[in-house]
Design a protein around this nucleic acid. Structure first.
Lengths: 231, 231
DNA sequence: AACTGCGACAACTTTTTTATTGATTTACAT
DNA sequence: ATGTAAATCAATAAAAAAGTTGTCGCAGTT
């Protein structure tokens, strides 16, 4: 009888991603030894806000969304996680719980790498550490932008930001809008679902975007940038 | 500004569950110090098969289901997890990955307790260890039963087993059937959804059960037991 | 070869979820 | 007080998921 596979080990049996290319053979071996590969199905949680985190996740393929949970069921979407990105890095060096949740928008093949392996390698390999820091900085900058948006902009500016952000992912992932509901878009903008629907219609009427079922095309990017700037 | 709570710390601020009553004040303190409380919303994964496990979960309230994932999207449901039960114990003493997934059927308030705290307490406190072993044994026995069912029984017997199992939870959780889809029931019995639907209809026709929307009442328990025995 | 048990597929119905729209209310800012 | 931004509510429409049913075919049994 064929044993039931916990993860599809054959699918990607080694560390191909560019981010791991700079590791020495020994370091690669260390990571390899303390990693496991998991297939998260569409809808599965990659991380749960508040749960203990003894590892970081590295996405090989598939898209997921990262969000913070508030009271009630009001979530705020932070970003779309793309292949080649880490999730849960923050849990490694500081807090030992995840400070956000994330959920797979499509099936996702993911490496889990234990904390110790990452910290060891970072300490040994400056280039790898540098990359890690760079990722942190980018995330940080994005968080500041998000915070600014939430604090100072109103509906129009927020949804414009959201549309520009997601549209920016469309080149690599043409299907990205199809994966998101109106509620998801609203949760990115931090507004109510109904408001999001109405604003999208307005934007379409104003010739800024086009709505085809769930897909959205940005027609007038400068117009959206304008609205984003006005706030 | 009110800080965003990661978990509802106020909701249950101490360890009330009977299972923790036997701990000495120091032991309780150890557990308390290395625990965190998380609200898993309906549909959230409590555990993901194959992911690293550095903690066990203790369910305070809410129901969830535990299942193993195969290839494709064929899941096999193992059990309903009730308040007062542990999830992921197996990951603590042996393997450091979860060997099953579980998902919240209702919102679930859950303690996560770090591995080390549990092992320490078990080593110190024989009574607590004894309880832990007892839980293991029960789970083990259930797994053997399940295995037997899967190996030797056919559809009728399997679905009878499933109905008897879930019906047994109804006293404490009258709504349990409403939380399960026909696919869920099929996945407990290890048969196709369509077969499950047909068999349920047959059982109703034969006066063994009654179907009201999603709820199911066992009318003739002995009949089901009979079918279960016949296999 | 005929039979049995059961999954797979297809067509269809029902239920649930998501999306949409207008009307109303709340909360600030002026 | 008045106006504006945006959430909430309620009603409906549309889309997606779940449930149902009949038919077929495969794999083992007899």
């Amino acid at each position: 009888m064929k044993p039931i596979l916990e993860t599809d080990q054959e699918f990607i049996c080694d560390i191909q991603a560019p981010c791991f290319q700079m590791l020495s053979p020994e370091e690669a071996e260390l990571v390899r030894a303390s990693k496991t590969q998991v297939l998260f199905r569409k809808g599965d949680n990659l991380t749960k806000q508040g749960a203990f985190a003894s590892y970081a996740l590295f996405v090989i393929n598939g898209l997921s969304k990262q969000y913070i949970e508030g009271d009630g069921s009001k979530n705020f979407n932070l970003r779309i996680i793309k292949p080649g990105e880490f999730v849960g890095l923050s849990a490694i060096f500081t807090k030992n719980t995840f400070n956000y949740s994330s959920v797979a928008l499509t099936d996702c093949q993911v490496f889990l790498v234990e904390k110790e392996a990452i910290t060891t390698v970072v300490k040994q390999n400056g280039q790898f550490g540098f990359n890690m820091i760079k990722r942190y900085c980018e995330q940080n900058a994005n968080l500041f932008d998000t915070l600014r948006t939430v604090m100072y902009k109103q509906m129009n500016g927020r949804i414009a930001d959201t549309l520009l952000y997601i549209d920016g992912l469309k080149a690599e992932n043409p299907e990205v809008f199809q994966l998101l509901s109106r509620k998801d878009i609203a949760d990115f903008a931090g507004i109510s679902t109904e408001s999001a629907v109405k604003l999208l219609k307005n934007f379409e009427k104003d010739g800024l975007i086009e709505l085809h079922e769930k897909d959205i095309s940005v027609v007038n990017q400068n117009g959206l940038l304008e609205i984003s700037k006005k706030g």
